[in-house]
């Protein structure tokens, strides 16, 4: 997304302008000096940890002591780790919900906002709807954990107030509802990237398309199905992959609200990895788990980049 834009203006003028020495190879030492601090920092805190993680996943890593090479033992252990794979099952649920229900409301809201005639109202609603994004994630999660509180929580109080007290429940303490409760956090999820992307996409559809559709007698629902959704296919694909990647990082809400419990009902890979490292002190195995997450994410990002590149060329071809 970035490089094609950047490439053109940067590459074109250089031959014409008379900076550096034109004919011989460009070795401006000051450029390398200027980039040195950046790469020093990245080397220490980005490249090295990534490599160290992969490297040590083949060792019985005991930081500070000697760490014997154990080959693929850690990976074998991972294959037999039921808790680890169960945590991926939870991720599966989280993923399905996050690309269905969690898209429905943003899409609905975006369609409604775009249906407003007054530009001013459009702007006002868009702004109000995304206000929750301005709250720190921790605050949102903690407030929702209060909503689920068995005694004082808003949910049980509300049920009580309308005479449904019998339905009151320890929502996050019951393995049957804990994961669902975690997913409800942030309902109706309109203050989210999907909403902004849908809205921008809809706003960018040329008016003529809608006018032509209206002339052909296309109703509002028909328009959503036959025009809006197909035209947003590219954005949907993008969001879909972003969702897979962000779901893999899911963990902090679970840590705060349920701690992965009860009975591992909300266990997710990130929490499992952290508990293996910090409670189990099994650093080599933790490195294996983190390498696995890393590889999965990198593969998905690779696919994402390919998709984006193809999209760009599609756009230009039109």
């Amino acid at each position: 997304m970035v490089s094609p834009v950047a490439e053109r203006p940067a590459a074109a003028p250089t031959p014409k302008s008379k900076r550096a020495a034109p004919p011989k190879r460009h070795f401006p030492w000051f450029v390398y000096v200027g980039l040195l601090p950046l790469f020093a920092l990245l080397g220490l805190l980005a490249y090295y940890p990534a490599f160290s993680g992969v490297y040590h996943s083949f060792f019985d890593w005991r930081p500070g002591f000697d760490s014997p090479f154990v080959g693929l033992d850690n990976y074998r252990e991972m294959l037999a780790d039921d808790l680890w794979w169960d945590s991926f099952k939870n991720l599966g649920y989280i993923f399905v919900v996050s690309v269905t229900v969690m898209w429905f409301f943003p899409l609905l809201a975006a369609e409604l906002v775009i249906s407003l005639r007054s530009e001013r109202l459009q702007f006002a609603f868009r702004t109000i709807l995304i206000v929750p994004l301005a709250f720190p994630g921790v605050v949102t999660v903690l407030v929702w954990s209060f909503i689920f509180d068995p005694n004082d929580g808003m949910l049980n109080q509300a049920l009580d107030a309308v005479g449904l007290g019998s339905l009151a429940h320890n929502w996050v303490g019951d393995p049957a509802t804990a994961l669902a409760a975690l997913l409800v956090i942030g309902f109706p999820w309109v203050a989210s990237l999907p909403f902004l992307v849908f809205l921008t996409a809809l706003q960018n559809i040329p008016k003529e398309v809608f006018e032509a559709a209206a002339l052909d007698g296309c109703g509002r629902w028909r328009r959503v199905i036959s025009i809006d959704l197909p035209l947003m296919a590219a954005q949907m694909k993008l969001l879909f992959f972003l969702a897979t990647i962000s779901v893999l990082q899911f963990g902090f809400a679970a840590y705060l609200v349920t701690g992965g419990g009860p009975d591992n009902a909300t266990q997710v890979p990130v929490l499992r990895m952290i508990s293996i490292a910090f409670q189990g002190s099994d650093w080599g195995y933790a490195a294996t788990l983190s390498t696995t997450l890393f590889v999965i994410t990198a593969l998905l990002s690779g696919v994402l980049t390919l998709i984006r590149r193809k999209e760009n060329s599609d756009v230009r071809a039109l």
Partner: peptide, 23 residues
């Protein structure tokens, strides 16, 4: 060099949590 920076976009923060902590 630029590619090396762009590549880092693909490294998820949680993946380097453990080795970074040890470092």
């Amino acid at each position: 060099l630029y590619g090396m920076i762009v590549m880092l976009m693909m490294v998820p923060p949680v993946a380097s949590l453990i080795p970074m902590f040890v470092l």
